[in-house]
């Protein structure tokens, strides 16, 4: 793998994490606003901006992979043909709309309807960004990438990282708010416990999707290696340990910890264990997804001549 491709590992993961987290935040707000509008506002009001900061860092990292970063603005020029142009266009638009929403939500500017509309547009732009990002790699000359597995792995990464990032953000905000007695801790704690429980069960389901997709991935990469005159065995001897570690970590991080979060949340009261489990889950899932994305770039096998 070229050193400059590490910039792409950082960019794709942070951008996908931001899109996933933003949508998880939107769905959470939509589901809880009627019942707990005030409390969900207090828990989530800074999160929109925080997610956009992560997207911003990712986009800055993407510049590091360019030979001529000052010309980065030209990357949107071929929107009609190039998925790379589409990715950068959607990422920039997601950043603009997401930041506008984040700022207005934090400062309580505009009506809540206007903010919801902005957030909805930003969410759609985020999904379009992740879709375009997947399509960049799905080109016929790159058989290891030219698979629905690319879509599956990018979207599951987005939502797994998104769930744990939004979960961790809400947990940290709860800690900060609860450091000053406001009489709402118990109510907010119950709300947060319910939210995390839902996140836990979705995380388990997403790990299930990743494990179902795994044999497809191995078959695709085996065929790809053959097409490029190599073999699956060679790839697995070079990277087998990393692949096993990645699978073990995603099973522990999202599967086991997700299930534990779900169980603990079943008591419908705040338990500080939930905070530790959520933040531990985020860390382990992040490491696993970094390894997964490293493998994605490292096992690239282009057809034809070197």
């Amino acid at each position: 793998m070229n050193p400059h491709e590490w910039a792409l590992v950082v960019f794709t993961l942070l951008a996908q994490m931001a899109a996933g987290a933003f949508i998880v935040l939107l769905i959470t707000r939509a589901a809880e606003t009627r019942r707990m509008g005030k409390e969900i506002d207090r828990l989530g009001d800074l999160l929109g901006l925080a997610i956009m900061a992560i997207l911003g860092i990712g986009m800055l990292a993407s510049l590091l992979h360019l030979g001529s970063p000052l010309r980065a603005y030209r990357a949107v020029s071929n929107f009609g043909n190039s998925w790379l142009s589409r990715e950068i266009t959607f990422a920039s638009a997601f950043f603009v709309f997401g930041s506008l929403y984040g700022l207005m939500q934090w400062a309580k500017w505009g009506s809540s309807t206007l903010r919801s509309v902005l957030a909805g547009i930003a969410g759609l732009l985020g999904v379009s960004m992740v879709y375009s990002m997947s399509r960049i790699y799905m080109i016929p000359t790159e058989p290891a990438w030219n698979s629905y597995e690319t879509l599956v792995s990018f979207f599951t990464a987005a939502f797994l990282l998104g769930i744990f990032l939004t979960g961790s953000g809400l947990v940290i905000r709860h800690r900060v708010l609860s450091s000053t007695e406001d009489g709402q801790q118990a109510k907010r704690g119950k709300l947060l416990s319910d939210i995390l429980g839902a996140y836990g069960i979705v995380a388990v389901a997403l790990v299930g999707v990743q494990f179902v997709a795994l044999p497809v991935y191995l078959a695709e990469i085996g065929d790809a290696a053959a097409a490029a005159g190599s073999s699956l065995q060679e790839l697995l001897t070079s990277y087998g340990v990393i692949l096993l570690l990645r699978l073990l970590l995603i099973f522990i991080g999202a599967g086991v910890l997700g299930a534990m979060i779900y169980r603990v949340s079943g008591k419908h009261v705040w338990e500080s264990r939930l905070a530790s489990l959520t933040i531990a889950g985020f860390s382990v899932v992040l490491v696993s997804e970094v390894l997964s994305r490293f493998l994605f770039y490292a096992t690239r096998v282009r057809m034809g001549l070197p």
């Binding site: 360019l66 001529s68 070197p306």
Partner: peptide, 23 residues
Amino acid sequence: CLGCRYCEWACPYGAPAYRPELG
């Protein structure tokens, strides 16, 4: 050219050649 090297990934003839000194 931005030097993103996407053409290098895509071309099955290995034709586009990156010039590190020019980016």
